[in-house]
């Protein structure tokens, strides 16, 4: 019994990281309607920013999170400049190709600049509580708290600020928003940067939770964020969060049953299953197909 509860706890903790990534992803693909393939690499850059803050600057975890946020934000601005600015209206394939290009450059560049070995991330919050046979790490609670805080902040931003409202307008209809005087390009820049920044934070958490960062971590992280976002419905931010947590749980249960070698395969199979059975995800709105 304890074993299963433990798996569930670990799953939720891991899921909170996925949730954060998925929210960032849903922001870019679902809300802004862009297509991105660089997501995993943004997470990787965020993770390294946090890692350097923790090890070389010896800052605390909070500054590390801010570092990850800021690095990913800046990267988001660069990505927008290279991948989207020339093609504000798509087509999707163009965005896909340009972001694949950036992703390849970042991934292989990181292997050269940062090395191919795993880097050890120092421990943060090593304590834990024990309930019967179940162990809850402090860091797990901390990650969940970060998820809640950032989700609440994002929710407030979307509801209360002018930029947030404009963002919602753009997500409904770009043309109409432009007619109402919304600077669509600015919204795309800001929205994309926010989406990337959230991923940067999730990258820092990923590094801290597993005590390691490495240059090729983006591939698997990108797949997880994509799978979570699709599971949650892509267009819905709460959906993405739920999707992330669920994916974390499924994955840990799956690993408990099979072996950890198949971790990424589980996420992938869930992705395929969702795309086949319910392409609109758990909370997504069904797109009215115009023929």
């Amino acid at each position: 019994m304890d074993y299963y509860v433990q798996t569930l706890v670990d799953g939720i903790a891991q899921g909170s990281i996925y949730a954060l990534m998925a929210i960032g992803f849903a922001m870019i693909m679902g809300i802004l309607g862009l297509v991105t393939f660089t997501h995993g690499e943004v997470i990787m850059v965020g993770a390294f920013a946090g890692f350097y803050a923790l090890t070389f600057l010896k800052t605390g975890i909070f500054i590390a999170l801010v570092a990850g946020f800021a690095a990913a934000w800046i990267l988001g601005l660069v990505i927008e400049l290279i991948c989207y600015r020339r093609w504000p209206k798509g087509p999707d394939e163009t965005w896909l190709i340009t972001t694949i290009g950036v992703s390849t450059v970042l991934k292989s560049g990181a292997q050269i600049v940062l090395g191919t070995e795993q880097q050890l991330v120092p421990d943060v919050y090593t304590g834990f509580w024990t309930f019967g046979g179940v162990r809850i790490l402090h860091i797990q609670v901390f990650m969940l708290a970060v998820l809640f805080l950032l989700s609440a902040a994002l929710w407030l931003f979307l509801k209360k600020t002018k930029t947030g409202l404009e963002l919602k307008a753009v997500s409904m209809d770009k043309t109409a928003a432009a007619l109402l005087g919304v600077d669509v390009r600015r919204i795309l820049v800001v929205g994309n940067a926010i989406g990337c920044a959230l991923c940067g934070v999730s990258g820092v958490l990923l590094g801290v939770y597993y005590n390691s960062v490495h240059a090729v971590m983006g591939g698997s992280a990108g797949l997880k964020s994509f799978a979570s976002a699709v599971l949650g419905g892509l267009t819905s931010i709460p959906g993405a969060a739920i999707g992330g947590v669920l994916l974390g749980i499924f994955e840990n249960v799956g690993v408990a049953i099979f072996s950890s070698g198949w971790r990424d395969v589980i996420a992938f199979l869930i992705l395929i299953a969702v795309l086949l059975v319910r392409p609109s995800g758990l909370l997504g709105r069904k797109g009215a197909e115009k023929v």
Binding site: R86, I97, G101, S103, T104, V105, S108, G109
Partner: peptide, 20 residues
């Protein structure tokens, strides 16, 4: 040689911008 894939990524980006 080490930069093979970086070159590939850049080649994609240059192509998209110059001759899609």
């Amino acid at each position: 040689a080490e930069y093979r894939l970086v070159i590939f990524g850049l080649a994609i980006l240059v192509t998209m911008h110059v001759r899609p």
